[in-house]
C-alpha cells in the first residue's frame, strides 16, 4: 500500500483541469512559434503570429481559471507578494506552485507582447498606445529575445503543472516522476494541433502545416512513450486504473488521442481535433482518478 493513499484530495477539478490543458496548449503553441521565430524564416510568419496570439489568449484564460479556483480569489496576489510586508516578493524555488505562479505571470506578459507584435504586423492595432508597443515588438532582435524567454517559459508552463502534481503526497501524482514530462509533451502536441487548426485562417503556408503535422506526429510518438514510462513507474499503483478513469485513459487518451490521429495522415485537421480531445482527457483522467481516491478507508483496506 503506497503511503500516498493516506493524504487528502485538494479538490483540483473543473477549473484546474481546463487550466492545465489550456496552459499546456498555450505553452506548447508559443514554444513552436518561438522555434519558428528563430529558425523558421518568413514562410512561417502566419504560424508564428497565430502561435503568439493563441499563447496570449491561453495565458490570460489560464490566469483567470487559476484565480477563480482559489478559495479566496481576491488574495491571488498573495502568491506573488508577501501579504504582510508588500511589496516584498513571495517566491519559493522548491515549490512548483509558487514558481508556477510567477511563470504563468511572466509567460502571460511575454506572450501578450509577442501577440501585440504579431497584431501590429498584421496592422490590426488601432489603439495608439498598443500600436506603439506592437511597433517596438516588431524589431526582430527584441522579438527574438522575447520569443526565446517566452518559449522557455511556455514549455515551463506546459510542464510545471505535471511537476506540481508530482510534488504532493497524492496517489498516482506523487507515485511517478513522469507526470511533468507527460503534460509537457502533451502540451506540445496539443499546441501543435491548435496551430494546425487555427493557422490556416491566418494564411499559413502548406510548408508550415507540413512541418506542424510531422512535428505533431513525432510529439505523439514521444507522448505515447512517456505515457508508457509513466504507467510502468506507477507499478502496483496501477490497480487504481481498474476504474472508469482507466478506461478513459485507454480509449480516450491512447486510442482517440494518440494512436488514431497517428493513423490519420490523410486529414490533419481531424487528427488535430482528436489530439486536442486526447490532451484534455489526459488531464481529466490523471487528475480525477487521484481526486476520487478516499483517504484512510483505502488505507485501512476496508
Amino acid at each position: 500500500m503506497s503511503d500516498t493513499f493516506f493524504s487528502g484530495a485538494p479538490h483540483w477539478t473543473w477549473f484546474i483541469i481546463p487550466y492545465f490543458f489550456i496552459g499546456g496548449l498555450a505553452g506548447g503553441a508559443y514554444f513552436l512559434a518561438a522555434i519558428l521565430e528563430w529558425f523558421g524564416g518568413p514562410a512561417h510568419r502566419p504560424v508564428i503570429r497565430t502561435g503568439y496570439r493563441v499563447a496570449a489568449v491561453g495565458a490570460i484564460v489560464s490566469g483567470l481559471l487559476l484565480t477563480i479556483d482559489l478559495g479566496r480569489p481576491l488574495r491571488f496576489w498573495h502568491m506573488l507578494f508577501q501579504s504582510e510586508n508588500f511589496p516584498a516578493i513571495m517566491f519559493k524555488t522548491w515549490s512548483p506552485i509558487s514558481f508556477g505562479a510567477w511563470a504563468i505571470l511572466l509567460f502571460g506578459l511575454f506572450s501578450v507582447l509577442s501577440a501585440l507584435g504579431a497584431m501590429s504586423e498584421e496592422g490590426r492595432l488601432n489603439n495608439r498606445a498598443l500600436r506603439a508597443v506592437g511597433g517596438v515588438m516588431q524589431g526582430r532582435g527584441l522579438a527574438k529575445l522575447v520569443a526565446a524567454l517566452g518559449g522557455l517559459l511556455g514549455f515551463f508552463v506546459a510542464g510545471y503543472t505535471g511537476v506540481l502534481l508530482s510534488v504532493t503526497n497524492r496517489p498516482i501524482w506523487a507515485d511517478s516522476p513522469w507526470l511533468g514530462a507527460l503534460f509537457l509533451v502533451s502540451g506540445a502536441s496539443t499546441g501543435a494541433a491548435a496551430l494546425i487548426l487555427l493557422s490556416p485562417g491566418r494564411g499559413a503556408t502548406e510548408q508550415s502545416l507540413r512541418w506542424l503535422t510531422s512535428f505533431d506526429s513525432r510529439a505523439l510518438v514521444v507522448e505515447l512513450l512517456v505515457l508508457v514510462l509513466f504507467l510502468v513507474s506507477l507499478g502496483s499503483i496501477n490497480k487504481v486504473w481498474l476504474s472508469f478513469w482507466g478506461l478513459l485513459l485507454l480509449v480516450g487518451v491512447v486510442g482517440a488521442g494518440i494512436v488514431w490521429p497517428l493513423r490519420l495522415h490523410a486529414s490533419p485537421a481531424r487528427a488535430a481535433r482528436l489530439v486536442l480531445l486526447g490532451g484534455f482527457l489526459l488531464r481529466v483522467a490523471t487528475m480525477l482518478a487521484s481526486e476520487g481516491i478516499e483517504r484512510y478507508h483505502m488505507a485501512a483496506g476496508t
Binding site: S7, G8, A9, P10, H11, W12, D69, L70, G71, R72, P73, R75, F76, H78, M79, S95, I97, L164, L165, T168, N169, R170, W173
Partner: peptide
C-alpha cells in the same frame, strides 16, 4: 488564499 496545495 485557498490554493489547496498544502492539502495534497
Amino acid at each position: 488564499n485557498g490554493c489547496r496545495a498544502c492539502i495534497a
